[in-house]
């Protein structure tokens, strides 16, 4: 049984419609299920999203990773005062 407050990464397989609602068919941990797609940004099949209580709430994206990796390195090496 899926707990309510747990976000799980899932891969988008297909996008459908239910009236004006967008539904994503996602695969997570070997099972597929239908979840609501509540992302304003465009999500395509093949993208990864965080699924939480039956909703795709966020797209997983590595565009901003560099910024945090830089801080990570600086703090660990002890040469940052940020």
């Amino acid at each position: 049984m899926m707990p309510v407050c747990l976000g799980v990464p899932a891969k988008v397989i297909e996008i459908r419609r239910d009236g004006e609602m967008r539904i994503a068919v996602v695969e997570m941990g070997g099972i597929t299920l239908e979840v609501l797609l509540t992302l304003g940004e465009e999500v395509k099949p093949g993208d990864y999203v965080i699924v939480h209580a039956g909703i795709a709430i966020s797209k997983i994206d590595d565009a901003e990773l560099e910024s945090i990796l830089k801080l990570w390195k600086e703090v660990i090496e002890g040469n940052s005062t940020v």
Partner: peptide, 16 residues
């Protein structure tokens, strides 16, 4: 919390 609110809000707004 805020993460679960859209699961009801989206169908209500879209009249589903």
């Amino acid at each position: 919390f805020e993460t679960t609110m859209p699961c009801t809000a989206e169908p209500l707004v879209k009249d589903r």
